[in-house]
């Protein structure tokens, strides 16, 4: 019996499902695409021998420059401001009702920067008074309770930045107490 071979047919690959998948992939990557938002960071190291549960160590006497941050006028958000004090002497009020650099007018931004620059100059004066060797000087950022804790993070970072611009990299933060003390926490747990 002769083998009957039919006419050779053109076989075509069905591309539609593959294109569907590829388009779905594109949509997924498009939706998950997020451009890098952070470009910088400030590195810091917390002390192991300070804080609520310090590791034992010998505390040495150090030359200190202390910047205190107070929050004033908390009742009215439009009037609230941060007051910076250096070594309990000079006072530097930041603009009232500060809404953040992106939402502020150029003249108010200029005022904010001028105040922080004045703090930096005051820090530099203290450094000079200590002999000018920044390695041996410790900066301290203190936000005294109860209202110091309400200071915006951005203002504390501005002071930290002023210390670093002045050449002091050893900066400590005096901690705000936790909402409950350990005994209050234990009493609450026992209830």
């Amino acid at each position: 019996m002769d083998l009957q071979l039919g006419e050779p047919q053109e076989t075509e690959l069905n591309m539609t499902p593959m294109i569907d998948i590829v388009f779905q992939l594109i949509i997924f990557f498009l939706l998950s695409l997020k451009f890098k938002t952070i470009d910088r960071r400030i590195e810091s190291m917390m002390p192991k021998d300070r804080g609520p549960n310090p590791a034992p160590s010998i505390l040495e006497e150090e030359d200190k420059i202390k910047v205190k941050l107070f929050r004033r006028g908390i009742a009215d958000r439009e009037r609230a401001f941060t007051l910076l004090k250096i070594d309990n002497a000079a006072q530097y009020p930041l603009p009232k009702g500060w809404k953040g650099r992106l939402k502020e007018t150029p003249d108010r931004i200029e005022r904010y920067d001028a105040t922080v620059a004045a703090v930096k100059r005051a820090i530099e004066d203290r450094i000079a008074a200590y002999g000018g060797i920044t390695d041996q000087i410790v900066g301290e950022i203190v936000a005294p309770p109860p209202r110091g804790g309400s200071v915006p993070h951005g203002d504390a970072v501005a002071v930290l930045n002023a210390f670093m611009e002045a050449g002091i990299t050893n900066v400590k933060f005096e901690g705000t107490p936790t909402p409950l003390t350990s005994s209050e926490r234990a009493a609450r747990a026992a209830r």
Partner: peptide, 18 residues
């Protein structure tokens, strides 16, 4: 952290880490 977040919250986070 947001620039406007209260500094005490940042400090509590630091204390939690330490």
């Amino acid at each position: 952290a947001d620039w406007g977040a209260k500094w005490k919250y940042v400090q509590w986070i630091m204390q939690a880490c330490a």
